[in-house]
Design a binder for these strands. Structure first.
Lengths: 239, 239
DNA sequence: GAGTGGTCTAGACCACTAG
DNA sequence: TAGTGGTCTAGACCACTCC
């Protein structure tokens, strides 16, 4: 582990423990360099990590200060989903189960081919899953994935976590996502599987998810019951 | 302007112009350092900026490559709202007008005091605005702001942009936000002002917005017509 | 003017990838 | 084994803040 990363860990620990008070300046970079027996550049890099996390901010000519909301930010951080930076506020993720509504392989539609950067002759998986929290349905997921990028999907994988398979078995890394979030009226599927009433709204997330190299591997629509959790977006502006 | 920032601009321009092909490696850091007549550290810092933007990714021992979705990312970037990293997909922002439904000063409720880190005796502004796009209502905004942080709000300011006032007149900088997004059934106000039917869902954003130093300056609920734009969230994972 | 963070350099070594 | 990116150093100068 890099030295600057260890130093960032130590400083973070001190902030959360209250040793560096909220709204007060940290020791200057020179003093920290002396304490950690390293160069000032290394200290600066450690502090940059904390700036990006939203824990501190630096003002040239003045100092580096602990943000007033440092504790809130760190609390939210721990809730963030590891793969999208967006969390569905759930009591307990371990109680999530899946039910496969549909699973086959076919050629992509025009839109699917465009979103996934495919030609019309590169096959895709088409997957519909109902996901349940403690046995109660809370979202329907319609997912398209390129066979070429994510090969050998099985029903066993679908009953567990696709992301776990991609990260664990395939060794691929998640590189980002673009999500469009909107409210909608319930359609027949929502009413049937999510047990929505006619006037129960649904929350839809339409997203494309990319690997580190920018290759798209998932184009999906997820429809949530309106009363089952919300979406959390945390933004940090370090400019 | 810092040299590394200028170099990043130039490399970004080359990528978008197609001079560095998608999915191919950039010249190595040594070659770039020679070309730009600078040190390798400075080149690395420039590349780090591009990594955070989602334009390229680096693999130790191999090289720095242009992401396959580099062009998409840069398109979305230009749509991003400057203050939250979340955009309402609007045809033309310049046609937005506001109507003040309510405006007064009072003491905060318990929840407001907690969200804004205030005591119960520090006054807040309470503002309700209806916002219209080309004359058509598309969202209702309920905003609480601490008088101490954002002083001297007037009706003139409310009819234009509060953010413009905060940035321009007060010289304060936006430092981040936490947003909860959910779908909901329309309430009386939605039906009255947004002209929602009984079964038209609304998209609600509940947010706290912070200044650079972590001081919260806005706690608000925004309710959108479900057929007027969505929310765009862009996530980039550089780890 | 003193003190702070921001940038930049030249050089070194390490970790990793690929042929 | 050669080539790449990642880290780190010591020292320097600049830009900015605050007294």
């Amino acid at each position: 582990m890099a030295k600057y990363s260890q130093i960032a860990d130590e400083i973070r620990k001190r902030i959360l423990a209250g040793r560096y008070a909220v709204d007060h300046a940290l020791p200057d970079q020179g003093k920290l360099a002396a304490e950690f027996e390293t160069s000032r550049i290394t200290i600066k890099k450690a502090i940059e990590l904390l700036v990006v996390e939203g824990l501190v901010y630096s003002r040239q000519g003045s100092g580096t200060y602990v943000r007033k909301n440092a504790l809130e930010m760190s609390k939210l951080d721990s809730k963030m989903d590891e793969y999208v930076g967006v969390t569905h506020q759930l009591a307990d993720r371990s109680t999530i189960t899946s039910q496969i509504l549909h699973f086959d392989v076919r050629f992509p539609t025009d839109i699917e081919a465009e979103k996934l950067m495919l030609t019309k002759t590169q096959p895709v998986y088409a997957i519909d899953r109902l996901r349940l929290l403690s046995g109660e349905p809370f979202l329907i997921e319609h997912t398209i994935m390129p066979v070429e990028v994510i090969p050998n999907i099985t029903k066993e994988i679908l009953l567990n976590s696709i992301y776990h398979y991609i990260k664990g078995e395939l060794g691929l890394k998640f590189g980002g996502a673009n999500q469009h979030i909107r409210a909608d009226k319930p359609n027949e599927l929502d009413q049937k599987y999510l047990k929505c009433a006619q006037d129960d709204p649904v929350l839809e997330i339409d997203q494309v998810v990319y690997l580190t190299d920018g290759v798209p591997f998932e184009y999906s629509q997820t429809r949530h019951r309106y009363d089952q959790g919300d979406i959390l977006v945390v933004t940090i502006n370090s400019v």
